[in-house]
């Protein structure tokens, strides 16, 4: 991508910026914030894997909160009850093999308990066999290329947010930084295998609501898979630092019904054979 501002000279008089924050801070404090609701958990899962991961995360979170409450319940009780200011006299014990064995064994059992579902989910994730179609994904500095070997379709997917918005000269639109010229189009309801690699440095292909994140490593192909259940548009980003454009190579996936997908495929083929790539409207 050719973003004009991507040269490595530090820019802008700091003072100007500082004033900008001052105003922005004021804005915030007067509760006039840029965007609406804050998300407190993963994005809505739309694949079987994403669902499992979501539950795994909830389980882990629960376990951790429980442990935290118990351990520090005890500690804060003692802070409350055993303080010198209340004239509490110190006990002298400093050893107890039984209790030490107990608090070595119990954590261990807890860990075994969480390791079981974790392992099951992991093995499911790693199994890329019997997939209905394959998409090859290649990371570049700083854009993605998508190939459909079977369908003979291939195109690049590049950030479509105008530089003017990034440089704060224009108001930012809804999908600021998460929009591309040619989204990846996939059919819902079938197992799709991804073959992911990179052309220059390491990138990482991540779509949160699919529960898919896999590094794109130059010279090697990583395989992963997904099966989208709900049609819609899903957005993700490159998640491996890959140079100055790392924040600017988003991923947009359009999940459509089988029928629409076939339509799209034929259209693309026509376009490719007509050997001119008219940009589908940015989304």
């Amino acid at each position: 991508m050719s973003l004009s501002f991507k040269n490595n000279k530090p820019s802008g008089p700091l003072i100007l910026a500082v004033t900008r924050f001052a105003t922005a801070a004021a804005l915030l404090l007067s509760a006039g914030s840029a965007s609406a609701d804050i998300r407190w958990n993963f994005q809505t899962p739309v694949t079987p894997m994403a669902h499992q991961i979501y539950h795994l995360q909830d389980l882990m979170f629960g376990v951790c909160v429980a442990i935290f409450v118990i351990v520090f319940g005890v500690m804060f009780y003692s802070i409350f009850a055993h303080r010198k200011s209340k004239g509490h006299k110190p006990a002298t014990f400093h050893q107890s093999t039984t209790i030490e064995v107990i608090w070595t064994v119990i954590p261990f059992l807890i860990l075994v308990a969480v390791a079981v579902p974790a392992t099951a989910t992991l093995l499911k994730m790693e199994n890329t066999s019997d997939s209905a179609m394959t998409v090859r994904i290649t990371g570049y500095q700083w854009k993605w290329q998508y190939d459909y070997p079977a369908q003979g379709i291939s195109f690049f997917s590049d950030l479509s947010t105008p530089v003017a918005q990034i440089e704060n000269q224009e108001p930012k639109n809804k999908h600021y930084l998460l929009q591309v010229d040619h989204p990846l189009v996939l059919p819902v309801g079938e197992k799709i295998r991804f073959q992911i690699t990179a052309a220059d440095v390491i990138h990482s292909w991540w779509v949160p609501s699919f529960g898919v994140k896999t590094d794109a490593i130059p010279g090697f192909i990583n395989q992963t898979w997904t099966e989208i259940q709900v049609p819609g548009t899903y957005r993700g980003q490159c998640t491996e630092l890959c140079g100055m454009g790392h924040a600017f190579m988003p991923i947009v996936v359009k999940a459509v019904s089988q029928k629409e997908f076939q339509k799209w495929v034929t259209a693309q083929k026509a376009r490719m054979s007509a050997a001119h790539s008219a940009a589908t409207p940015a989304m």
């Binding site: 991507k6 490595n8 802008g12």
Partner: peptide
């Protein structure tokens, strides 16, 4: 959001 006081590479 948006680049504030520096270039991405910095």
């Amino acid at each position: 959001p948006g680049m504030q006081i520096m270039k991405p590479y910095f």
